[in-house]
Design a protein around this nucleic acid. Structure first.
Lengths: 241, 241
DNA sequence: TGTATAAGGTTGTATATACAGTATAGTGAA
DNA sequence: TTCACTATACTGTATATACAACCTTATACA
């Protein structure tokens, strides 16, 4: 049940970085210092530092030390943005209404997506977001009650589901998949679009401390929305090939 | 100079996966079998398998074994990846052919996109990339001759345009826009898809030292490709609301 | 036949140890 | 002062060993 030692060391270091106590460029404890602090072997300290380096949080220089890395510039495309804020930023009026709200038993596919060992109960929410009265986003979301037990007690008139989850659960990992889809008849009706209007489907999973918090599919009518990002590439170059 | 042992073991396994000798679902040698084969310690074999698992190539089940993972047909969202490499990573065959190659005078729209004060000459390239003979990406690219003067002298049989530009020009800024589109008749023909098949259009501009290097639109048939990214969130939290 | 138990293979983690390579600071000699 | 050398600290890799947890299969037993 208890986490492995190397994972605890990783969490210890990540905690200092996330809290802002250890800032980019700052030196983190050497392997031998971690050995002393945690009474572990050097190989265990090495694994923690090596994995954090692979994850992009640290950089190591032989003979010198290990340092907090500059956080990479992420695009708004992949940030966890709140559609209510985006619409407000444009000076438009955001409205939303809840289409479906229930607690379900996870299907086999959902059990796998949530990385659960056994089927369990999940919150299910379907919502339509509108900009100046025009539907622009269909939100179909599943939430792990273990990660956000009070999710289903919220009324989402003032705070969107994304806004609530970001505030309630510290997300430390994200996965995005974007694809083009044709809307199902249900989706056509909810978004008020024709059957030949293509849509952008943004599928997102988010993790907190190794557990999947939520799985959501955001569907945008192509004529009303595109996803955009612009950013500086990091110095060392995240550009592969 | 010579690569570490664990890296050699990784390459050995990746080679079998890339060549197609080891297919998804197939069992790969256990740690103890690798110990025998390569005369290494179990910890070294463990590191090779563990890192390949973290990289997404393998999946491991305690008490059972290690298996080749199903490679998803996905393109990276945030990195500047080369489609030839992506296809090779899945162990498939990449082919490409040049549809159009010319030097044109920039239109008003292109002049603006390239942030030029006056219309100028631009390289124009249209290419179709195929995976195992099936078209998966239509590349429509414009290149600024000032940034990459020798671009049009390349034959892109061994190196893709993306690969050439990344190596030749230090890109320091990127802009991505993703949208869902219906293919034009020309695009339908080049990608060999029907008129009702939606496509994902990834529009990218890249800058080097303040000048636009290239503007490219990559069109993917929705049924054959999705765009994907997964990453640890940066410490202080790029998560906006 | 059906069920509990044991054995063996597999991954996961942790330790102690060793040696190589690199960068830096300090020391001593020219 | 300047240069060469040395000691030290740090990372990188590799090995041998150990134990735990998990799964499958074979075996013994009722």
């Amino acid at each position: 049940m208890t986490a492995p030692l190397y994972a605890k060391v990783k969490e210890h270091i990540l905690g200092h970085i996330r809290s802002g106590a250890w800032t980019p460029g700052m030196r983190v404890p050497s392997e031998n210092e971690l050995v002393e602090t945690f009474s572990i072997s050097r190989m265990t300290a090495n694994r923690a530092l090596r994995e954090l380096t692979a994850d992009g949080f640290l950089s190591r220089v032989p003979g010198v030390g290990t340092f907090v890395k500059e956080p990479p510039a992420r695009s708004s495309l992949v940030e966890l943005r709140n559609i209510a804020d985006e619409i407000a930023t444009r000076g438009h009026r955001h409205t939303a209404h809840i289409e479906t709200r229930e607690t379900i038993e996870a299907s086999a596919a959902l059990t796998e997506e949530f990385e659960l060992r056994l089927p369990a109960k999940l919150f299910h929410l379907v919502m339509v977001h509108s900009e100046n009265g025009v539907p622009v986003q269909l939100e179909e979301r599943y939430v792990n009650p273990f990660a956000a037990p009070h999710f289903n007690e919220q009324d989402f008139s003032a705070v969107t589901p994304t806004g609530y989850l970001v505030a309630a659960v510290p997300v430390d990992e994200l996965e995005h998949t974007v694809e083009a889809v044709m809307p199902t008849p249900d989706q056509q009706a909810l978004l008020d679009i024709g059957e030949h209007e293509p849509c952008l489907a943004l599928h997102r999973r988010s993790w907190s401390k190794g557990h999947v918090v939520t799985v959501v599919t955001l569907t945008y009518p192509a004529s009303r929305y595109a996803l955009h990002s612009r950013y500086k590439t990091s110095p060392s170059g995240t550009l592969s090939q």
